[in-house]
Design a protein around this nucleic acid. Sequence first.
DNA 1: CGTCTAATTGAAGCATCTCAACATGCGTGG
DNA 2: CCACGCATGTTGAGATGCTTCAATTAGACG
Lengths: 243, 243
Amino acid sequence: MAANIGHPLPVGPLIRKLEALGPLTGAAKAALADLPHTIRQFAPHEVVLQQAAQPANIYLLLNGCVFRSTVVIGGERQIMALHVAGAMLNLQNLFLERMDHAISALVPTTVALIPRSEIRKLFDAHPLVAMRLWHETFIEAAIARKWLTGVGRRTAYASIAHFLSEFVARSKAAGMSDGKTCEFPLTQAELGDALGLSVVHVNRTLKKLSRHGLISWNGRSLTIDDWARLNEVADFDPAYLEL
Amino acid sequence: MAANIGHPLPVGPLIRKLEALGPLTGAAKAALADLPHTIRQFAPHEVVLQQAAQPANIYLLLNGCVFRSTVVIGGERQIMALHVAGAMLNLQNLFLERMDHAISALVPTTVALIPRSEIRKLFDAHPLVAMRLWHETFIEAAIARKWLTGVGRRTAYASIAHFLSEFVARSKAAGMSDGKTCEFPLTQAELGDALGLSVVHVNRTLKKLSRHGLISWNGRSLTIDDWARLNEVADFDPAYLEL
DNA sequence: CGTCTAATTGAAGCATCTCAACATGCGTGG
DNA sequence: CCACGCATGTTGAGATGCTTCAATTAGACG
């Protein structure tokens, strides 16, 4: 892998995300942009990092959308998180050798590969950057807890309603939606994998949400027709997203 | 709150945990033991930190066992993690103001309350300690992902088998079990809350595991009678616990 | 135009839930 | 020391949410 020294890393989304948590020094931001790296593209459904991989690089999501998943014995899949531009996908590999799950692209996606040693150096020079990323780690943990609660303790109807609410809320925060309509890159099968449901039941439940006038789902785009009632059945409170 | 300056903090379990991940300097260990703190005791089922609390202190678990949970609309509860001695219970509150979940004691439990500012000072002076704790954060995230997979994609039979396997394995690692028998502090109702199952079904499934000769459950103590078969139905691989 | 993936629908089965009753053990007050 | 209350565990019966299997339709794309 040839490092792209001299081509600054497009760290816009990352820095926006980190500065939402607290200020960064100009030097820290410059150091981020100066990180040596390689750019890679992934097609929809392509695997970015395989389960049990031992990556030598940290992957920064520059563009697109990915999800985390594991495969269980029966071949079933559990999706555990979604990420958009600005996310460090495998910061854990600074400390842990192996991926305990896989990361896959949902849409055409661009990633920067940064050597682990460079990240460590940056953290030594700018501990504040490390703190902001640690902060981000805790927010992701909180989202994961919500996810777990949804899977374990909600009916399919409420679970799907919650997922859609959160997705549109996050799209809006990322400037990819007006808060009512947005592109929805998951298939019904993937939605089922995210929530622990069968495709068939996902389909029926979406129909029901649609029939009740809460959402519209035409192909790849999703519209929330009745935020108030959707939030009610979903028990959705956007506060925890820290948007 | 009066800080117990002069009474060293019993950091044995914490340091054992951190040094399992990599060495610490003597100065760092001394700084940990020198942290000002207050000791508090909790009875079984007592709430250590309430959901939505805004704690000014970081809670270090010195002794006992606690769990994390949230309450959903219907009054149902989802348990999301267990912790034993040496765990920093709310390190997230260095960055986030509110608890997004509750922490409760399972058994008689001792906790040290350490002012957030003191932890921050320690991190500034000993960045390596911060790195070890961050490392620990990622391990907990991996455990949470396993938990999620279990709730979403396993039958009750496999899910309970996995939970029991993990519990005994961790007890053994903490020196509280010989690997076959251990105290099991959860009620069947709590086990149900952890796995998203009703009490009734937990009971029946435990009976079935027992009838099949995999475990014995007499009141508060649990025995694994057939590790090989239990691991098989549980699809349990202790590697990810990093023990 | 044929092929592939995603969405849709029906029918039958089972895992799990709810409701309800009862048993067991333990702590506490009388 | 007994009696009571309360939390936990146990079991039965019936309801249902969700799954599986199977077949069909609708779009997307070379």
